[in-house]
């Protein structure tokens, strides 16, 4: 009797242990506070690219001081390729699609869209993108269908990424080649790597999509101007000439 009850006790113990094990594993990406989303991306201003640098020995992962009011101008990250330079940008799709692109950057690159837990939901590279710089529109399925309903010509040349994930971030990895790297200065980075709210070209009947678009203010003009510039070839690129 005693042996049997001990056996049952152990069995119950192991069963509960398994539940704890599985529970922690499954919830780790959501509950973690030190993952790339929670600790690195979330504190960032949305739609503003920030230089990422390699973490140095002695640096603790979650080193960003939250009580500190000084704006973040670079973020340290580990497990980065030192032969690449990196930029990160947080975005949210609540106010409309997001346009990710570079200006004046040539060479090999890869890009990763991730959200909670640092878990990737989309990735691509220069080769997959037919050797061109990134020009990606991240949207929800309903946003893209209303864009299409407007017969918007502005979707041309854009790689569409449809997702239901509204809060996410992009990590852009740019190969260092011929002395070329992403700026380590945050202000300079803003004119090289963009992740900004998307503004379509005005179409005849745009009533339904207007609300999303009107929320956005000055970046719109900038985005539009550069889309035009891109379609007419980026010949003003100083690095390639």
């Amino acid at each position: 009797m005693i042996n049997r009850s001990l056996f049952v006790t152990l069995l119950i113990g192991l069963f509960l242990a398994a539940i704890i094990h599985i529970g922690i594993l499954l919830f780790a990406p959501r509950l973690s506070v030190s993952d790339a989303w929670e600790a690195i991306a979330l504190p960032l201003e949305p739609f503003v690219a920030v230089p990422v640098r390699a973490m140095r020995p002695g640096e603790v992962f979650n080193d960003l001081d939250e009580s500190d009011d000084t704006p973040i101008t670079e973020v340290p990250m580990r497990d980065l390729d030192p032969q690449f330079s990196h930029a990160i940008c947080r975005f949210d799709l609540n106010s409309g699609p997001v346009h990710i692109r570079t200006d004046g950057f040539e060479g090999f690159w890869t890009l990763n869209l991730f959200s909670a837990g640092g878990i990737s939901f989309f990735s691509t590279n220069e080769q997959v993108n037919a050797g061109r710089p990134p020009n990606i529109l991240v949207t929800t399925p309903s946003q893209v269908s209303s864009l299409r309903a407007n017969n918007s010509a502005s979707l041309n040349n854009l790689a569409l990424v449809e997702t239901e994930i509204l809060n996410a971030a992009v990590l852009f990895r740019a190969y260092r080649q011929h002395q070329q790297a992403l700026p380590t200065d945050m202000a300079e980075l803003q004119s090289v790597f963009y992740c900004s709210p998307f503004q379509q070209n005005p179409a005849p009947e745009t009533e339904e999509v207007q609300p999303a678009a009107t929320v956005l203010d000055e970046p719109i003009l900038e985005t539009e101007a550069v889309i035009e510039a891109e379609t007419t070839e980026t010949t003003e690129d100083p690095l390639t000439e």
């Binding site: 790339a36 890869t110 890009l111």
Partner: peptide, 21 residues
């Protein structure tokens, strides 16, 4: 794989995605 995902979350990294390398 939940082990890999939990590992990624714990380490605060963004590993190379499917199409990155």
């Amino acid at each position: 794989n939940p082990y890999l995902q939990a590992h990624t979350a714990r380490n605060g990294t963004v590993p190379l995605g499917d199409n990155e390398g």
